[in-house]
Write a protein that binds this DNA or RNA. Structure first.
Lengths: 340, 340
DNA sequence: GATTTCCATTAGATCGGTCTACCAAAGGTC
DNA sequence: GACCTTTGGTAGACCGATCTAATGGAAATC
């Protein structure tokens, strides 16, 4: 079965290929009578527009690339879906890759996307991304790259939560409960997001009397439930029993709940737990989890907008956009009281 | 900044464009000395391969399309990630769309993907998909489409769990507990997966004495936590108090837990809860959730394999591949005993 | 009536690769 | 020396759109 091209259509409609092309794009130069005739020929022959051919000539592709680490974390899933939605409404298709937080894999995916002529890339950088690792590919092609949720370079656009504010909000809440000590558990050790959250927590705790330690479980923990369990185990096995455990993310907090219970400790009663992200699950857990909402939908939407702007005008200076977080207080901390 | 083409490279290396092209594809006809010279010119000029141009000539695109309903359901997230992985290792890039279980949106995404010249499409059909809604686009382009996890047509390939077996396993387990009544809650009403699960449950319950009702909450419930809460509310508000609630999926079960507790009923003690999918969360819930694992990784992997086979040989007859499920018994049903 | 403007339409180059068909020179065979 | 084969390489058509510059004819202007 031969594919139907614009040539076939134009021949059937008795016009030139150029005319058919103009009809396709709804040019006002073609009178309705002719246009109708061409459109009829299209449906009759079962014509399918070949975007690749068009894009080749126009040297754009109407596709965006999106690389995220892992969508089994609902936070990233929500982010991804919003970005897809924004891209689609702007007429773009989305090429996705999951780096699984592996720089090597991420490089390959960047390379592929560039070869596929994407018009822009949204990158949620794998931990350990550095400019020179990513740069070569980006430089060679001059594709605009926007960093989402984490960043490693000041020279590229960035959209993410205001992690410092988020940390501060959480710290103030925890100290207002009267806790004496808190630890941070989980999260990708060298990511900007983690560093900023720690910074926020530290400044938020200053002068409050709460002893805060972010170093207890940092190494080798990951941004999922397993990382949470492992982190709790490591802390408690050191004989440390903080008043409040702060999880790097809700995904981590879920593992923290599980590990606490394995040790017959009830979250929210024996140890408070609080977290970042506020995924839908947070509210449905028992006890409901106190979490700082970082609004992935907003971030995704803004990221897509900003990238599309840059595609239109590549000369813009690098931009940073921070989304304001909001603390959601729930039973996992609200019921806290000093041990007797 | 002008883009560097094969022409530029060949000129710099003092060979013809044809030779450069052959080097690119590692042809054995070109001796290593020449190849090296060409490769040097490539890196020196910062050449980036233009896949679109190549694909245009070869009339393939090395991209696959994937349309799923919603990846905030971890089951679909896992499925999606496996498919991406399989596609990437086979050298394909993935174009994704999230239908949000909306047929209209799904049609648009199919259309776009076909225009983008994808070599094949993996479709997790939105509920209400019918052949004629999808067919037009598919027919016109003759792109191979494979159905994942749900199906609506016997003429297209299908890979999914053996839902009937899954239902039977669950039914037998529930009846072995001595339950007298069970209801099914949640799930997309007209999907093949739900119909099959009900069929499996019904045959599994036959002769066991367990009264099973799947009609109580069917209408208008969805495949997520909200659907679960709503479903439980509707059932209990009718004055029905089953011994066991069977959730369409783990995502639904999470909402069921929440709604039961809102009514001061403890899942696994006052009412047993069991479910399908066995996402990672199932084990971490309190009480851990009995669920039939349907192995999204296996399904995703097989789906990608099968689609790639069909792309290689489009003349194959439509294939069906069912993945065997496995029941994971946990505390949400294990602790069940008759009310006194 | 001559010239200009406008309208509808088109021929042909172009995007950046791949592929077919062909060629020139070197080496081998009788 | 004539003929065949192998090696290394190339010219130019081609994929299916878009876009520029041009054209023929009708209407409008002087």
């Amino acid at each position: 079965m031969k594919t139907v091209t614009l040539n076939d259509v134009s021949r059937a409609a008795g016009v030139s290929r150029s005319t058919a092309s103009l009809v396709l794009r709804g040019s006002p130069k073609i009178p309705e009578t002719t246009a109708e005739r061409v459109r009829l020929a299209m449906t009759e022959l079962g014509y399918v527009y070949n975007r690749h051919a068009a894009n080749m000539r126009r040297s754009e592709s109407m596709t965006l690339g999106l690389i995220v680490t892992d969508i089994r974390n609902p936070y990233f899933a929500g982010l991804t879906m919003t970005i897809e939605e924004a891209a689609h409404t702007a007429g773009y298709t989305l090429l996705v890759g999951y780096s699984r937080d592996d720089v090597e894999r991420q490089s390959l995916q960047l390379e592929t996307m560039v070869q596929q002529q994407v018009d822009g890339i949204l990158l949620l950088p794998a931990t350990g991304s550095e400019l020179n690792a990513v740069c070569g590919i980006i430089d060679r092609s001059s594709v605009p790259v926007l960093q989402v949720a984490r960043y490693f370079s000041e020279e590229l656009d960035y959209v993410g939560p205001d992690n410092i504010a988020a940390g501060q909000q959480l710290a103030r809440h925890v100290s207002s409960l009267g806790a004496a000590s808190a630890v941070l558990i989980g999260g990708p050790e060298r990511s900007s997001a983690r560093t900023e959250r720690i910074e926020g927590l530290e400044t938020g705790f200053t002068g409050s009397g709460v002893v805060f330690d972010s170093s207890l479980s940092a190494a080798a923990t990951t941004n999922n439930a397993a990382g949470g369990s492992e982190g709790v185990a490591r802390v408690l096995d050191q004989g440390i029993w903080p008043d409040c455990i702060i999880a790097y993310s809700d995904a981590v907090a879920i593992g923290i709940y599980a590990e606490l219970r394995r040790r017959n400790l009830e979250p929210g009663r024996d140890i408070s737990v609080a977290s970042f992200d506020d995924i839908a699950m947070a509210e449905l857990l028992l006890p409901p989890l106190t979490s700082v909402s970082t609004y992935p939908e907003l971030i995704g939407h803004q990221a897509a907008e900003l990238l599309l702007n840059r595609i239109r005008d590549p000369s813009l200076r690098p931009q940073r956009s921070l989304v304001e977080p909001a603390l959601k207080i729930r039973a996992s901390t609200a019921q806290w009281r000093p041990r007797t």
